[in-house]
Nucleic acid binder design. Structure first.
Length: 807
RNA sequence: GCGGAUGUGGCGAAAUUGGCAGACGCGCAGGAUUUAGGUUCCUGUGGGAAACCGUGCAGGUUCGAUUCCUGUCAUCCGCACCA
């Protein structure tokens, strides 16, 4: 046996896998069950893979390799998320065609993925910017349009002045542009929306069904933001008491309705327009509206959100239960997009209402027990205490829990309101004014209006240009390409214009797992039978930073495609694993922008792919954030050195009696750990077994074979090489060894014996010994621990014996 | 403010129907082999002189609690003027 040369050996196997394609997934395999493992495809950039990719890909690869040994027909594909920022920025900076950038970026990724030893089926690879892929992204948009799930509307949207493009809510989280990190402002534009809000309840069910960490589920539920309450109509009157119309509000706290002292509507609320002839200070109100349009920008910068508002004079609301006349304010703490854009304000039991009332000297009426001298008694608080109602007519004195349903009933009976459910999630604003995205398959005709491009004319190719900048007026760069923009209406044949905005870069990633099942299909997004065969993704790994966007978009699109019969399954994923971060030595996230990143190739160059794969995952669990360090990597190198030296320790065949228990336990443990992506404990189990082999100074041929298979998913190169040298074949033809239940527990086991709950001695007893046998052993050989009269014994076979002794 | 997760040696971390806390690895200490060693191998390694004490802190349930319950503190993450 010579020295192990990882550079040579790893290259040899990677080339072999490249040539012989042993990881090809087979459609409709006649005997093997399917298993679909997916790693979230990377955004194609020009750079190197960072350690995050190493952390993210390996568990998926381990699972894929493990499942193949277990006899599954595994689909483990990869591609590139290619539209969007990196390619576009490169284009803006250097003038390179983004197509070239993507091509080169993908080539680089491919080389690096291969250098890690990942077992992807490369024949199914594609980029979202490939025309024969985005043809189907456009096709899905046409279906959304056809089924009324896409609409164009003028409205206020998130807009990034820096990127000169509109953004979805999901892309503007925290008021920051997800593309550049700049401040997002509100701007009025024509916007394509997808009716995602309609799917809120279904998305919540998706979240419930998918196997995923609780914190990820919670942040999705949070984003969907379900809340149950009531819509209630308040009559509006002019100052003479003449009926004008109704103001509808949404509240989750109907129990506080007797405490309403003012109404507040969003400045944009259309009630201001419809009742403008009755408003005596219309100028003031409109000026306030104008001011708030510009305000959101600085608001977000200031920590102090000072309440502002403007009384709408000349109109009053009437509390339907008390008949009390109350003032109406326009106030920007009320959001136009949520509920009805209007609220009933109860300053004693809502902190915002309290602050507003204080500023505008509005009276307070307390309707629930608690101290409201300095602040409101909030819902959580009075619900927790189940406080009693005050000043609430016939409900006064009742605890909240009792009063609430009765008030609801009363309001409903009087025909003043009804129970409703609200969601914070909004429709998905779906267009961007950028070059590098899917063109919309839509034509505007002066005579026919919005006309979809006929399906036979797809894809609408993204035209080439060398000017990638948006226009000064905010139009997309495509608007400048006149001979592309001007076209004929497919319906009437007259002059028409194309939609010049492009889709957001999330479009292509909202259905890509479906395409892997049939990536070259030219007549459907994928063949229905193939979709049926591969079904939902069994295990989807990847980052957590996109969880409220990518995963919810994925649920949304697949729900829709399922409902129109384009795909056979409603759930895209059965299990979603969120990869933890790799942190630097300061505990900060490794990223390109903070320049603290260690490149995957650097680690592979120094130590080899097998060591890199194992070390990253020996540092901690897959879903945990783990600080990166080279410290300790010698633990892995010396382990693999010992594995290599096993070749000199082979003695005999079969499974030796010395190793039969350890090996069976190892097979069980490693299999379970791979299934759960607990790679760190799998590695430690393999190390423990290795220790035993070293102590015993031999391993049999069959033990070695099993051991190599167990280790192969983690360290595919060294195990393939050893297998070939020793067994003259390809380890990939092996099957996962089976363990035998009867060899998991040895005949003689150690049993801890406690005296009064404290460990006294560990004794050897036969496996599954009865209490009587154990007591006899103690009396015969360990009499000294019995220091008094045994008054009680607790015996759990194989686990513990606890003796309660009275002295 | 709301919601979620986490809290264990010098370090990364193990431990689930409640049953020997700290597996495995690093580091550290001592020893062996070696001309040499940032090599390899062996031994030890939670604290404490010890009785004992130890899983953020304080209680509780239990024969027995890192694990279950109540309260509390800290850190991280998500959302946030959502009525």
């Amino acid at each position: 046996m010579g020295e192990y040369n990882f550079k040579e050996v790893e290259k040899k196997w990677q080339e072999k896998w490249d040539k012989t394609k042993p990881f090809k997934a087979i459609d409709f395999h006649p005997t093997k069950p399917k298993y679909y493992v997916l790693y979230e495809f990377p955004n194609v950039s020009g750079g190197n893979l960072h350690l995050g990719h190493l952390k993210g890909t390996i568990p998926a690869d381990v699972l894929a390799r493990y499942k193949r040994f277990c006899g599954y027909n595994v689909l483990f594909p990869i591609g590139g998320d290619a539209f969007g920022l990196p390619a576009e920025n490169a284009a803006l900076k250097t003038g390179t065609d983004p197509r070239e950038f993507v091509k080169n970026g993908m080539k680089k990724f491919k080389e690096q993925f291969k250098a890690i030893g990942l077992s992807f089926d490369w024949d199914r690879s594609f980029c979202t910017s490939d025309p024969d892929y985005y043809k189907w992204t456009q096709w899905i948009f046409l279906q959304l349009l056809k089924h009324g799930k896409a609409y164009k509307q003028r409205g206020f949207v998130n807009y990034c002045p820096n990127c000169k493009t509109t953004l979805s809510n999901e892309d503007s989280q925290g008021g920051k542009c997800d593309r550049c990190g700049g401040e997002v402002i509100q701007k009025e534009r024509n916007v394509w929306y997808l009716k995602m809000k309609e799917y809120s309840e279904k998305l919540l069910q998706n979240v419930d069904r998918v196997q995923m960490a609780e914190n990820l589920k919670q942040s999705q539920r949070n984003w969907i933001g379900k809340s149950e309450g009531m819509k209630v109509k308040f009559k509006l009157e002019d100052k003479n008491g003449k009926d004008l119309s109704n103001l509808e509000i949404f509240t989750t706290c109907i129990e506080t309705i007797y405490g309403v002292t003012f109404m507040a509507v969003a400045p944009e609320n259309k009630i201001i327009d419809t009742l403008k002839t009755h408003i005596t200070n219309l100028d003031e109100v409109l000026a306030y509206r104008k001011k708030t349009e510009l305000r959101s920008e600085f608001d977000r910068k200031s920590d102090q959100k000072e309440k502002t508002g403007c009384e709408i004079k000349g109109i009053y609301a009437v509390n339907p239960l008390t008949g009390r006349k109350i003032p109406v304010y326009a106030a920007d703490f009320v959001l136009n997009g949520y509920g009805t854009g209007a609220v009933m304000a109860v300053p004693t039991h809502d902190q915002r209402d309290y602050e507003f009332a204080e500023k505008f000297n509005i009276p307070l009426i307390q309707v629930l027990e608690g101290d409201v001298s300095k602040q409101a008694v909030e819902k959580g608080e009075y619900l927790a205490n189940n406080s009693k109602l005050l000043n609430s007519a016939e409900f006064s004195g009742m605890p909240v829990k009792e009063a609430k349903p009765k008030i609801i009933e009363k309001v409903e009976k009087l025909g003043l309101g009804e129970k409703v459910t609200n969601y914070q999630m909004q429709d998905w604003s779906f267009n961007r004014q950028r070059y590098w995205g899917e063109p919309f398959p839509v034509i505007f005709c002066p005579h026919c209006g919005v006309v979809p491009v006929p399906e036979k004319d797809l894809p609408v190719l993204l035209p080439r240009t060398n000017d990638y900048n948006p226009s000064l007026n905010g139009d997309s760069p495509l608007a400048k390409i006149k001979d592309w923009v001007n076209c004929k209406c497919p319906q009437c044949g007259r002059d028409a214009k194309r939609e010049t905005d492009t889709m957001p870069n999330w479009a292509g990633s909202s259905w890509y797992w479906l395409r892997y099942t049939d990536p070259h299909n030219d007549s459907a997004l994928a063949d229905y039978e193939k979709l049926k065969y591969w079904g939902s993704v069994d295990c989807y790994t990847g980052g957590t930073e996109h969880i409220t966007r990518h995963v919810l978009y994925a649920f949304f699109w697949q729900n829709f495609l399922y409902e129109i019969g384009a795909v056979p399954t409603r759930d895209p994923f059965i299990r979603k694993m969120g990869s933890g971060l790799i942190l630097d030595d300061q505990g900060k996230k490794m990223s390109k922008s903070s320049k603290n990143g260690v490149s995957t190739m650097e680690v592979i160059d120094k130590y080899g792919a097998d060591v890199a794969r194992m070390h990253v995952h020996f540092l901690g669990g897959y879903e945990d954030n783990t600080p990166w360090t080279y410290q300790g990597i010698t633990g892995i190198t010396s382990f693999l050195d010992k594995v290599w030296s096993l070749q000199d320790m082979i003695k005999g065949e079969g499974i030796s009696k010395e190793h039969i228990f350890a090996l069976n336990r190892l097979i069980k443990k490693v299999g379970e750990d791979y299934e759960n992506l607990h790679l760190n404990t799998a590695i430690s189990a393999l190390m423990i077994f290795m220790k035993k082999i070293k102590d015993d100074k031999f391993i049999t041929l069959d033990e070695l074979k099993a051991f190599l298979v167990l280790l192969n998913p983690l360290a595919p190169h060294i195990t393939s090489e050893m297998y070939e040298k020793v067994f003259k074949g390809d380890i990939l033809t092996e099957t996962w060894p089976k363990y035998d239940e009867k060899y998991l527990v040895e005949d003689v086991v150690s049993l801890p014996v406690q005296i009064n709950g404290k460990l006294a001695k560990v004794i050897s007893v036969p496996n599954e010994a009865t209490e009587q046998t154990v007591m006899e052993i103690i009396k015969a050989s360990h009499q000294s621990i019995l220091t008094g009269e045994v008054i009680k014994t607790i015996y759990i076979p194989g686990k513990i014996l606890n003796l309660i002794i009275k002295k």
